[in-house]
Nucleic acid binder design. Structure first.
Lengths: 178, 178
DNA sequence: TGATATATAGACCAATCGGTCTATATATTA
DNA sequence: TAATATATAGACCGATTGGTCTATATATCA
């Protein structure tokens, strides 16, 4: 997973994968089939990791605004400095393969949907608790938030994230909560 | 440019470029040097196009909120349906190459900076005109907006943009203006 | 210890990669 | 029309691609 993560699908050659898995050529093909299958497994694992993280951070039993703050804080960390420059396997894959590879497209589209739903749920709970600013609609605010988060990962690839990152995230959330 | 745009750098092979440029192998190398140089030229042109578009849409002589609306409307169009699925050469390149290619990184980082500055300027003018909501800081709002816009381009790669796209953009801008 | 199953290293494969070069055709100019 | 410059097609190059296969070594087990 790590190799695809830092280099992308096309730029990752078999020798890279052998080095990373410490497997011989034969064993790797016996275990995973081919490069594409191995990539899908990596993508699935990456998605699974992201989902469990969301399950924890956006746990419905938490106070919803705290949960959202924790969730956003995770992105701040993952898009800062070296973490940020490494990028995001999901975003990179969306841009590199989603247009040409149906299997990949399916996975990414469904993850995006799940992510949006979970954030929308958290916002709904916040609204029910009277924590949302006037006129803020959970579904629409969720779409805004996730677009913003993906955008963060793009910008973080080139710009060494400034100290202002956390402040920017706070400013956005601040527009939604009261 | 179009080929790199729809397929990415690594996935574009010489024959693709020959077909697209209608040049012979020899002529292409005489004219552009090598694949990488040709790619940089494509990237430069893409950036130049984006800059002139911004110069028009965010023209300081326009009413600033109108200008921002026009600018955002451009993104709505470019991320809808087939346009959206085609993606964005800048975002795709940022994810695919920015980490490994200094020339590319420089170009993208400087464009991101220019874009942020122009949006921040427009927001400053809006603020001066008393059009910004209370507590909205132009610099921070600009960062939020551009992250959101890049994120749009990521999401648009997989999700056939729903009718709600324009509404989402309006909702975000609505949080900033009064 | 001897037989058997498993994993290893790495030779090998055709196809394709980016890039060069030459012989031919096409303009251009005198 | 003849001489010259330019662009073409495409053969060709070594390197590398993803993928297969075999001979050898290493465990496992009786």
């Amino acid at each position: 997973m790590d190799v695809f993560w830092s280099r992308g699908y096309h730029a990752t050659a078999l020798p890279d994968l052998l080095r990373a898995t410490k497997l011989s050529r034969g064993s790797l093909y016996a275990a995973f089939g081919d490069k594409h299958s191995l990539f899908l497994r990596s993508l699935d694992r990456y998605i699974a990791d992201a989902m469990t993280r969301m399950d924890i951070e956006l746990d419905p039993r938490r106070e919803p605004v705290d949960a959202l703050r924790a969730y956003l804080a995770g992105y701040v960390e993952r898009t800062s400095g070296a973490n940020g420059r490494r990028g995001c396997l999901l975003v990179a894959t969306a841009m590199e393969l989603a247009g040409q590879d149906a299997e990949v497209n399916r996975r990414i589209a469904s993850f995006f949907k799940a992510m949006e739903a979970m954030v929308a749920d958290a916002l709904s709970r916040a609204k029910a608790a009277g924590k949302l600013a006037e006129g803020v609609e959970p579904a629409s605010a969720a779409r805004i938030l996730i677009c913003f988060l993906w955008g963060l990962r793009v910008v973080a690839k080139t710009a060494p994230t400034p100290i202002t990152l956390q402040a920017t995230v706070d400013a956005l959330l601040g527009r939604f909560i009261r």
